[in-house]
Design a protein around this nucleic acid. Sequence first.
RNA 1: UCCCCGGUAGCUCAGUUGGUUAGAGCGGGUGACUGUUAAUCACUAGGUCGUUGGUUCGAGUCCAUCCCGGGGAGCCA
Length: 487
Amino acid sequence: MRIAPGDLLSWANSLEINHNIMSAVSIKKALSGEIASGTQIKIRGWVRTRRDSKAGFSFISTHDGSCFDPIQVVAPAELENYSSEVQKLTSGCAVICTGELVESQGRGQKFEIQASSVEVLGWVEDPDTYPIQPKRHSFEFLRDVAHLRPRTNTFGAITRVRHVAAQAIHRYFHENGFFWVNTPIITASDAEGAGDMFRVSTLDLANLPYKENGSVDFDRDFFGRETFLTVSGQLNVEGYCLALSNVYTFGPTFRAENSNTTRHLAEFWMIEPEIAFADLDDVADLAENFLKYVFKSVLDECPDDMAFFAQRIEPTAIERLERLIDAPFVHIDYAEAIGILKASGKKFEFKPEWGLDLQTEHERYLTEKHFNAPVIVKNYPTEIKAFYMRLSDDGKTVAALDVLAPGIGEIIGGAQREERLDVLQKRMLEQGMDAETYSWYVDFRRYGTVPHAGFGLGFERLITYITGMSNIRDVIPYPRVPGRADF
RNA sequence: UCCCCGGUAGCUCAGUUGGUUAGAGCGGGUGACUGUUAAUCACUAGGUCGUUGGUUCGAGUCCAUCCCGGGGAGCCA
């Protein structure tokens, strides 16, 4: 039996195995208007608040995460467990509510449920100390209860936006003929100096084997050599790029840097597309096109969540995404950027100078003050960039790019790769890199080399930008940062 | 890693130049009231003031130390 792609989901949902799943409806569906008023429905979720009316019923505001809004369940005093259970419900209790879906008599919601049954599945053991209360909590506090914070409005919204953005990313690439490549998480290459690495080892730290010269004998480690957690899938994905043309990675990435900022995590997710037969301008266009697609998808698919961010987190959350979708990104050369900074007359803590990397204050000036738009800065001085970036004819610059966004700074870093064998080898030699470790990478330049380019996008930085959340630790479920790996 | 700021009730905070029994709002409990919706009103329970040490007749308050958190910088995505 062959089933048309558009019918696959209804075919799957019709299978016996799903009958139990379909017996209740999501709150999203109950509030959507798809279900006729008067229909008997069942919803399952967690209590946000309970308000009693002595007129003989209680309002139970219930959420299940399917959408931003909770549904109001009207529980009449006639319920057999009304005084014994319903009136004892507190924030966080898990309930199954059955009843008639009706248009609400009160303001604030279109539909509500006139309950004929409220079944309590899980009580809150001690309501007095349950951390998630129906009030505003600080994000600092919620980080200490990261396992419970998904029950709040904000973290529910973040989770849905994160999901929609991830789906949009995969969809964008899929529909543009890219293949998702799962590059290894454990690696032996000291990946291009992108940062300090976490060691992966099964050696007994209290009883390390040593070689005769006194160094640790990694021959006896699990992989028979030193290994680490990946800091980038780029080197690996290049191999797939030079066979499948358009590829990307989307996976966890690890940096053991002692970074204590609102935009760094020790464990984060990174998206790295890599395109063959392409130069720096091609990858700059890809970055712009890609970002606009993802932003548009989130605006279209998460209107309620985005409205919440605009109302409570960052007033311009929606407008700035709309503006960014409409306006072309600014493209400038690093040299021009230095010129603009020097001519600005602004006093910077670090003086802008050709040959030095742009400081955060410089990036902010360019993207927030001078252009007030996303800026793609291209062609950086050779000395401050990685070995694999393509050298210009005069050798002074490499074909690197950074995408700077107002509010967060660097969101994307990319480059055209050095495809010429001799030039790459020379640069690796200059930087004192171990030729043997990277021989497989150099092979790509030996066998059918072509110009190719790619970029890296920090997924959490993207979510930070979309939602207006100011700390990256609040857009990943369980943040890992120096000194903390709770939960 | 460096520079600033902070740690008081379950949560968010106030607490005077050091001075008796440390306060408020929310949340919890009890009651009243109400198609309510951050409901409202009354009553009530709840604190070794981050740790350790010091100064003082007396420390939430001053000093030192360590721990933890936040913001900024560097590194980067």
